[in-house]
Amino acid sequence: MASCFRGGSGISSISSLPSLPHRTRLSVLPVKCLSSRQSRDSDSDSDLRTTPSPSSTSGFSPYGWCAGIGGVGFLETTYLSYLKLTNSDAFCPIGGASCGDVLNSDYAVVFGVPLPFIGMFAYGLVAVLGLLLARKSFPIGINESYGRLILLGSSTSMAAASAYFLYILSTNFSGATCSYCLTSALLSFSLFFISLKEFSVEEIQKVLGVQLCIASLVVAALSTSYSSIQPLSSR
């Protein structure tokens, strides 16, 4: 009986020995699976955080638009400046002879400087500022806030001048059509609204007085320059 008891206890002890590592293995495996699952989840979360959204990568910067529009205006005014220097007639797809009359009139000069020269400088400045703001790379002494203010001031002066020129075109050149004048006005107004859109309402309220002063100075300067010009009807 004692031997049977020993045998039985030996069998039970032997059968219980393999279960210890098995239990230990079972208790370790869920921990490994859980840790690997957590690592995979953390990797996927980090991928989601680092991967940019399609809208941010496919969107085009508003300052890039300013640079492009400024480049188009620079090319237009460069062409008109070349015609002014060579005393050549402009190709006017719309307006014909009336377009040339407007471009060669006394209103195409401000204080002795041809308007295409002024426009070439203004559009070139806007194009350079747009590129700098889009790339966020500025020369020494100029930061992004100053660049935005200079761009807004430049586009404000250009829009005010274009509005004044459209007024002159409608009053002193009745029936005449100038495709270059209309194109320049469209470019100037587009630059103004794009640059203004990048400012918040609070920022616009702070710089509204400066914008009004710039527009008033432009209108006053043009009115002074054209004050000695006789109306076309009296010639």
Results as ranks from 00 to 15, higher is better:
residue 116 P to C: 00
residue 116 P to S: 03
residue 116 P to G: 00
residue 116 P to H: 03
residue 117 F to E: 03
residue 117 F to D: 00
residue 117 F to M: 11
residue 117 F to T: 10
residue 118 I to Q: 02
residue 118 I to E: 01
residue 118 I to D: 00
residue 118 I to G: 01
residue 118 I to V: 12
residue 118 I to R: 08
residue 119 G to E: 00
residue 119 G to C: 02
residue 120 M to C: 13
residue 121 F to G: 04
residue 121 F to M: 13
residue 121 F to T: 08
residue 121 F to H: 05
residue 122 A to W: 11
residue 123 Y to A: 05
residue 123 Y to E: 01
residue 123 Y to H: 11
residue 123 Y to N: 09
residue 123 Y to I: 08
residue 125 L to Y: 05
residue 125 L to W: 02
residue 125 L to C: 12
residue 126 V to Y: 05
residue 126 V to D: 06
residue 126 V to N: 05
residue 127 A to P: 06
residue 127 A to D: 03
residue 128 V to D: 03
residue 128 V to Y: 07
residue 129 L to A: 07
residue 129 L to P: 04
residue 129 L to M: 09
residue 130 G to A: 07
residue 130 G to I: 00
residue 130 G to R: 03
residue 131 L to A: 14
residue 131 L to R: 09
residue 131 L to D: 10
residue 132 L to F: 13
residue 132 L to R: 01
residue 132 L to Q: 14
residue 132 L to S: 15
residue 133 L to W: 08
residue 134 A to P: 00
residue 134 A to S: 12
residue 134 A to M: 11
residue 134 A to T: 15
residue 135 R to L: 14
residue 135 R to H: 11
residue 135 R to W: 09
residue 135 R to D: 14
residue 136 K to R: 14
residue 136 K to S: 15
residue 136 K to I: 11
residue 137 S to G: 08
residue 137 S to R: 13
residue 138 F to W: 03
residue 138 F to Y: 15
residue 139 P to Q: 09
residue 139 P to N: 06
residue 139 P to C: 11
residue 139 P to F: 08
residue 140 I to K: 10
residue 140 I to C: 11
residue 140 I to R: 15
residue 141 G to S: 06
residue 141 G to P: 04
residue 141 G to K: 07
residue 141 G to Y: 04
residue 142 I to H: 07
residue 143 N to P: 09
residue 143 N to M: 08
residue 143 N to D: 15
residue 143 N to T: 10
residue 144 E to F: 07
residue 144 E to L: 08
residue 144 E to P: 01
residue 144 E to T: 10
residue 145 S to F: 13
residue 145 S to R: 11
residue 145 S to P: 00
residue 145 S to A: 14
residue 146 Y to Q: 14
residue 146 Y to C: 13
